[in-house]
Computed example of a mutant assay.
Amino acid sequence: MRENIPVLRLRDKSSTLVARDGVVLCFFMRRSHQEVAPAVWRTLQAYLRAIPPQSLNWYGSDEGDTLPLDDKGWEHIRYQLLERPWGAEWIVELEENSSEGGGYLFEYDGRKLDAPIFSHDEDSTSGVAFSFPTEYLLEHGPAHLRTLALDLARELPFSFGYASLAFVSPRGRWYAARWELLGLLSRYLGMDLYRLGDTSRVIGTRARGAYWLTFLGQPLLGQLGGIEGLRQELPFPEVSFEPLEGERVLLTLGEWPDAIDTAKETYVPQYRALAHLLEPFLYEERTGWFSLDKDNLRRWLRRLCQ
């Protein structure tokens, strides 16, 4: 329900907004950049059509600078995504605001999986993420956002994907308010925190967790017993199943996403049931982006399995 969605703003010591409540859509593809780049470009165009004009105003350059997303910037983004023939990794970061955390973000981390740097690693993927401020969800409604997520998913050869309430924070700026953030993550079990580049490097064809919209591709869907097996394990009236081409499925766990506020009486058995089903197939992070103690991230990723 919409009243279960909190308004959350995190600021650093100088009062700069570094993270805020929003919605994120992430997809992970066990495919090389060259295979997925045209589809990623099409999803970016669909995202731009769906959000207000001038919602994306800045991009990250190859040199690490943040530059205005003008005509020259778009030429660079198109070249980076569709035309650059060399390299092992293709990174695109587009954001709403260059100095504070805005609600609209597009991130892509594409990899050449047979490049020497990745060829020994069976867990690398190409990943893409789209984010929205919570106001977008409240204005357009969950059915609109679900339809948009489906449209994007149909373009992408994903092995796993999801849409969730999240702390939206470009380039990990949340770190400046990490102690407050960690407390909020402990309270709101339905709020996601993500780092696309780190996760897409190690997720392979496994899962990240149970979310409002959970997209399952192969081989994960088969490992879970297919759609019919999931129907038997998730017999909840709130859960719907949307078969997709290529033996894939979208699970929707409710009309609205739920922040799962532990300070209130929350009853979301469908989230916990899916989390338990996915637990044997969850990936393991290998970096310390969430915490220097990797066990903290492991426990957080399994928070709904408790």
Rank of each mutant, 00 (worst) to 15 (best):
L253N: 06
F290R: 02
G288K: 12
L274N: 10
T16S: 12
Y175C: 02
V40F: 10
C26Q: 12
Y194F: 15
S98K: 15
W86R: 15
G222Q: 12
R49F: 05
F160D: 01
A207N: 01
G64V: 05
S131Q: 01
D71W: 04
L44K: 06
R171A: 10
K13Y: 11
Y175A: 11
R208L: 04
P237Y: 00
I203Y: 02
Q232N: 08
A143Y: 03
D21S: 15
Y162G: 04
A115T: 07
L213I: 13
H76E: 10
S15G: 07
Y47V: 05
S131C: 08
Q80W: 00
A275L: 02
L278A: 09
S131G: 10
Q306R: 15
S291T: 07
E180V: 07
Q232M: 07
R146N: 00
E35W: 03
K264S: 11
A50K: 00
R231A: 02
G110W: 02
L145N: 04
R78Y: 09
L220T: 10
K264I: 01
E83N: 14
D70G: 08
E75W: 00
G73I: 03
P6E: 04
L8Y: 06
Q218Y: 08
T147V: 07
G209R: 01
L82T: 11
L216N: 11
R154M: 02
C305W: 05
T147D: 15
L220N: 09
Q54W: 12
H33C: 03
V168K: 01
T147G: 13
E180H: 11
E63V: 04
L301C: 02
R302V: 02
K294F: 06
T125Q: 10
W300S: 10
L244E: 10
H276F: 07
Y211P: 02
T262H: 02
L277D: 01
L82A: 08
V168G: 07
V36E: 06
F215L: 14
K294Y: 04
T66A: 04
G110E: 04
W179Y: 12
R201S: 09
L196P: 07
H76K: 13
P237S: 13
F290W: 07
L10A: 11
Y267V: 11
E242C: 13
V268D: 01
E3R: 04
V202F: 10
